[in-house]
Design a protein around this nucleic acid. Structure first.
Length: 212
DNA sequence: AGCCAGGACTGAG
DNA sequence: CTCAGTCATGGC
């Protein structure tokens, strides 16, 4: 753990929001659709996920009973466009088993533990479900978030360290966590991919203004 | 024609 | 425990 300097996350959020506006992330028709989307989008372009969800909806399978009733191979063919379709077919069934009988009154920490025990559900997928489907205040860390931090001198080791970094510096507000994460991805698509192309990145302006 | 996308699991060392 | 390999389609 080696923090060179601290980003002002509130300033960063405000700047991104003023620049890009609300992102309307995960406007899924139902809570369950968001849960499935969280699995389907693992390392996958969202456009491909929409095709897979569209196929499920067309077959009337976009509900827990439908997913459990469908054969794994048939399910796999329907979600083909989202890639990794064999593993994702199993993961959809696994997350659905959890979804049908989880206790909504459970504390966020316990729910997270449950989710992480499901095969195919890692920290980002678990947190996406908690935040975007269930409205719990957990900050979602993804590749874009880490890249943004690293390019501004914040180098942490693990997922949990990054999460604590954000949650510790922002008010505990699910709606803002939601919007902030979406804005970071929006920023990343334009300026913060694997191959650095930071020219014109709005966050550069932030640095300059802070120095005055 | 590569490179990349809103990751997670497995097995080797 | 770290980490390369694996899973796979579609858009640009």
């Amino acid at each position: 753990m080696n923090i060179l300097h601290v980003m002002d996350l509130t300033d960063t959020y405000n700047l991104l929001y003023n620049r890009f506006g609300p992102q309307h992330w995960w406007p899924g028709d139902t809570e369950y659709e968001i849960v499935l989307g969280a699995v389907l989008t693992q390392n996958t372009n969202w456009g491909n996920v929409e095709k897979a969800i569209g196929n499920l909806k067309q077959k009337g399978l976009l509900n827990p009973k439908g997913i459990m009733r469908a054969k794994k191979d048939a399910l796999a063919q329907l979600i083909r466009p989202s890639g990794y379709y064999n593993q994702k077919a199993e993961r959809l069934k696994a997350i659905t088993e959890w979804y049908m009988k989880f206790d909504r009154k459970m504390k966020t920490k316990e729910l997270r533990k449950e989710l992480l025990s499901i095969k195919g559900v890692g920290p980002e997928t678990a947190d996406s479900i908690l935040l975007y489907a269930l409205g719990r205040p957990v900050f979602v860390i993804d590749a874009y978030t880490k890249r943004m931090c690293e390019r501004h001198g914040v180098n942490l080791e693990t997922y949990d360290e990054y999460q604590k970094y954000f949650e510790g510096r922002l008010p505990r507000n699910a709606r803002k966590y939601n919007e902030f994460h979406a804005l970071i991805v929006r920023l990343g698509k334009d300026y913060c991919r694997k191959k650095p192309r930071c020219e014109g990145c709005p966050l550069e302006n932030l640095k300059k203004e802070k120095r005055k």
